[in-house]
Design a binder for these strands. Structure first.
Lengths: 200, 200
DNA sequence: GTCTATAGGCAGATAGAC
DNA sequence: GTCTATCTGCCTATAGAC
């Protein structure tokens, strides 16, 4: 079960998650230590253990909060945007924002380290992906019905492709330190979804 | 400079690379230790240090050999296949093979851990990507001229998109343990390149 | 909630014998 | 080329004072 005991905003637990999130998104989970987080936080590792029983629990809390915030952002998109194509652009912008902060998507990063994670963290990562795919599928379905998006196969299949491509584009673009590489893939993907888009 | 001092096939250095390669592709570089590799190899860590000065040197040798073998495979595709579309299918099959062994692309894995790698390893990873993109660009150019492939933009841009999408598809598919997810993205990408392919 | 102190283990790495 | 032995440092984690 992926529960959410939201730590109080501004409290130590919350700030610990802020620091850990950034470090993990930049270096990877296995390259971040309790000492890294607690030092930057200005407390001892013992204090950190008071808030999170172990590194795995800290990692799980990290994913859960990331996922909740991401879902909030998706709801905001649904609220503010009606056109399906514009929703996809807004979705891609979420990723662009992460990349501009020199970070990788938290769950994309953890997907690479998947086999070395606790089962709790693994489950939380997969849940994040599933919810993203489901949201994308809904948007694609809307767009298809409204005639503003065209694609082969089912909305879920197309959503899965989009998620995979965005994660990969982040991964590679960040290595090169060239955000333009990410945007190019996004433009390519969105162009393919335009009604009657010719491939060549 | 990315030099290649090929270790003798079957020797300790070569077998060490075999073991390390598999472990890194499964767990990630930062979750693999000298002890892990040497233990599985049946030698001590001191012996491993005789062949590779440090973990970074081992890592670099890993990428260099991986890259050389990958380039050999690309040459083989060029030799055995004339149709551009078939070349792309063969290229995707290289990745499928990696995934079937429950592994991630070595350089995709290291791209996630990029910021925690030595500069030598970083350079080798980027070189791998660049060479892949260049090969893809060549194939795409051939296909466009032969009329067997259609795509928007330059061959290099399209090649970069393909590389990113394949790496991302591996990343996500492997987390779910569902190779079918990877194949679905591949089918989608290849379908988009068919001449006169309609998007919807 | 945070601290000091410390345990126990594993990391990468080296010296020197064989 | 491989070994034993060892070093130093960092890791996660805990006990107990404040």
């Amino acid at each position: 079960m992926v529960k959410s005991t939201r730590p109080r905003e501004g409290g130590t637990a919350s700030r610990a998650l802020d620091v850990a999130e950034r470090l993990v998104q930049v270096r990877g989970f296995n390259a971040v230590s309790y000492a890294d987080v607690s030092k930057e936080l200005g407390v001892t590792t013992a204090a950190l253990h008071y808030h999170f029983a172990g590194k795995a629990e800290l990692g799980e809390a990290l994913i859960i909060r990331y996922r909740e915030r991401f879902n909030d952002a998706l709801e905001a998109i649904d609220r503010d945007t009606s056109d399906a194509h514009a929703k996809l652009e807004a979705y891609a912008d979420l990723y662009s924002g992460v990349l501009r902060n020199d970070r990788m998507c938290l769950c994309g990063m953890l997907a690479a380290e998947f086999d070395s994670l606790s089962t709790g963290m693994q489950g939380a990562v997969l849940l994040f992906f599933k919810e993203n795919e489901a949201w994308l599928a809904d948007v694609l379905q809307e767009g298809r019905e409204a005639g503003t998006l065209e694609f082969k196969g089912t909305p879920l299949e197309e959503g899965r492709s989009i998620l995979s491509c965005l994660e990969g584009a982040m991964l590679v673009a960040r290595s090169f330190g060239e955000i333009g590489r990410f945007q190019q893939v996004v433009d390519h993907l969105l162009a393919m979804l335009r009604p009657s888009a010719q491939s060549g």
